[in-house]
């Protein structure tokens, strides 16, 4: 009886000591098997030998060996945890060169002209304008005549035009590639009653030799508002918001009289140069202003053509060249870059 008790005590001391000094998880596991293994464990064997003892002895030794078992298990768990912690602590010391290149990601972007047109359009859709679009092949009537460019009018000179073979309109006039997005206005007004608030983004064509500042294709965003009480003050308000939204700054704009047949008064709109805050620099040729777009009040002749009464309604229209905006905004000096689609260019926006 006594020897058994001592044996248990010795086993406990020895086991605790060995657990404490176990080197790693494997050593710890073999200690667990050695002492507590279900079949061959030394404590298990001792417990198995209790069968030969009296009931009192069984009880006393049983109690003691359960205590030993508990202690050993607790020691194993504690040691286990401490080994794992040491392992983690060790792994935290392994240094990694985090400057190595990241996994490549592939994400494309919209063309800069799309970005600019989306930006412009959103200025006006936020105000409640609808987006209206139209075909790129147009009739002479929609592109010119209805917009107060009658046949044989010199204002047509500034719209060198591509004509389409084999196709004519109802009046037997050849179809053409639209020279501006303004025919969309005609289409919209002839099918809608005032009030009208639209923006028309789109691709347009002019029969022009290509160089750094000219392209036979370009993009416009045109706006049109027709209502019972529209004045030049409204035009100045929205264009100022446009300037502020696209270029930042204080939204300073300047109107100058000009001429576009479909508006009267016709206005050339300059924006305050945001590169020099209007102080004058090489980009604005020291004027502090950048020529940006054409606008005006819709010519009553146009209103009458689409069946509106110029005594009852008035309106404004403006046409913004997306290339011009993008070139100023990003400092691009060659319009051809937009259509070459060189990735080294596209990736900059």
């Amino acid at each position: 009886m006594e020897p058994l008790k001592d044996t248990l005590q010795t086993l406990q001391d020895e086991a605790l000591r060995r657990i404490e000094s176990a080197a790693d998880a494997i050593a710890l596991e073999s200690l667990r098997v050695e002492y507590l293994g279900r079949k061959e464990g030394r404590l298990t064997q001792i417990l198995r030998s209790l069968a030969q003892l009296s009931a009192d002895e069984k009880k006393a030794i049983g109690q003691q060996s359960n205590q030993v078992k508990g202690l050993l298990e607790e020691a194993l768990t504690r040691k286990q945890e401490s080994i794992e912690k040491e392992k983690i602590d060790l792994s935290l010391k392994t240094s990694l060169d985090l400057t190595l290149p990241a996994t490549p990601w592939m994400r494309g972007k919209c063309h800069p002209l799309t970005q600019v047109m989306d930006d412009i359009v959103s200025v006006f859709t936020r105000l409640g304008f609808n987006i209206a679009e139209g075909p790129e092949v147009e009739t002479d009537f929609n592109n010119f005549t209805a917009l107060n460019h009658p046949p044989d009018h010199p204002a047509r000179d500034s719209h060198d035009t591509f004509y389409v073979k084999d196709f004519k309109d109802g009046a037997n006039v050849p179809l053409l590639m639209r020279t501006h997005t303004s025919p969309v206005q005609v289409r919209y007004m002839t099918t809608h009653k005032p009030p009208v608030y639209i923006v028309s983004p789109g691709r347009v064509f002019r029969h022009e030799a290509v160089d750094a500042t000219h392209s036979y294709v370009f993009h416009q965003v045109e706006g049109l508002a027709i209502d019972t009480d529209i004045s030049l003050a409204d035009l100045k308000g929205v264009l100022s918001l446009f300037a502020k939204s696209l270029f930042g700054g204080d939204g300073g704009i300047r109107f100058r009289p000009s001429y576009f047949p479909f508006v009267e008064p016709g206005i050339e709109v300059d924006i305050s140069c945001t590169l020099c805050q209007g102080k004058g620099c090489s980009v604005c040729k020291n004027t502090g202003w950048i020529e940006m777009l054409g606008a005006g009040l819709v010519n009553p002749k146009v209103l009458r053509t689409v069946g509106y009464d110029p005594e009852q309604v008035s309106g404004y229209a403006f046409g913004i060249g997306a290339e011009r905006v993008a070139m100023f905004k990003y400092g691009i000096n060659d319009i051809r870059l937009f259509y070459e689609n060189d990735l080294r260019f596209l990736k900059q926006f």
Binding site: F124, L127, G128, F129, N130, P195, V196, Y197, I198, A225, D227, S231, L232, A233, D234, K236, G237, V238, L239, S240, L241, I253, R254, F255, R256, P257, E264, P265, G266, I267, L297
Partner: peptide, 22 residues
Amino acid sequence: AEEIIRTLGYDRLQGRLRGAPG
């Protein structure tokens, strides 16, 4: 109207911003 504003100058014009009740 154009002749008037051309003579008076566009500097007189104040912008007015309204939503579009379209």
